[in-house]
């Protein structure tokens, strides 16, 4: 099963994009990896569950969380949270071992505009009061 939220583009905008890209031509990492337009940066939501997996990869680290839901057959929903790059996260206290599978976690996030179970990681609180700040996202662009 593959879920996706795709930005719509008109021909007019495609022409603008081509012009912009042609002018650019070089390193553009300074701006952002992508637009973050799929996230609602005006609202922060909070959800709690347990860490399913820390997917440590370029260009974005993903945090996967099992959230209890008695209305689903397995008793859990799987939520996905996009985060910054390993390079940036590594500089602000993250590592491959920053999260342990099964560890309780409360995630503050910018939700997906389409209502799917996911969003952009803003920050998280873990057991013992430990907290982790995320990187990237609509509020930080």
């Amino acid at each position: 099963m593959r879920k996706s939220f795709r930005a719509t583009r008109s021909l007019h905008l495609a022409i603008i994009a081509l012009s912009f890209s042609a002018l650019l031509g070089g390193e553009s990492k300074v701006l952002a990896h992508h637009t973050y337009a799929m996230f609602d940066g005006e609202h922060t939501k909070v959800i709690s569950g347990t860490v399913a997996k820390l997917e440590w990869k370029n260009p974005h680290v993903f945090v996967w969380v099992y959230v209890p839901n008695q209305n689903t057959p397995g008793g859990y929903d799987l939520w996905a949270f996009e985060n910054g790059s390993p390079s940036v996260l590594g500089a602000i206290g993250w590592s491959l071992k920053a999260l342990k599978m099964g560890e309780p976690i409360t995630v503050e996030y910018w939700p997906l505009k389409n209502g799917d179970k996911g969003g952009h990681f803003e920050k998280a609180t873990l057991s013992g009061g430990r907290s982790l700040r995320g990187a990237g996202g609509p509020g930080r662009f």
Binding site: L13, I16, A17, F20, S21, L31, T35, M38, F141
Partner: peptide, 11 residues
């Protein structure tokens, strides 16, 4: 354009 999501920049 990028901030609005209208432009997908892959430079």
């Amino acid at each position: 354009q990028i901030l609005s999501g209208a432009l997908v920049e892959r430079g």
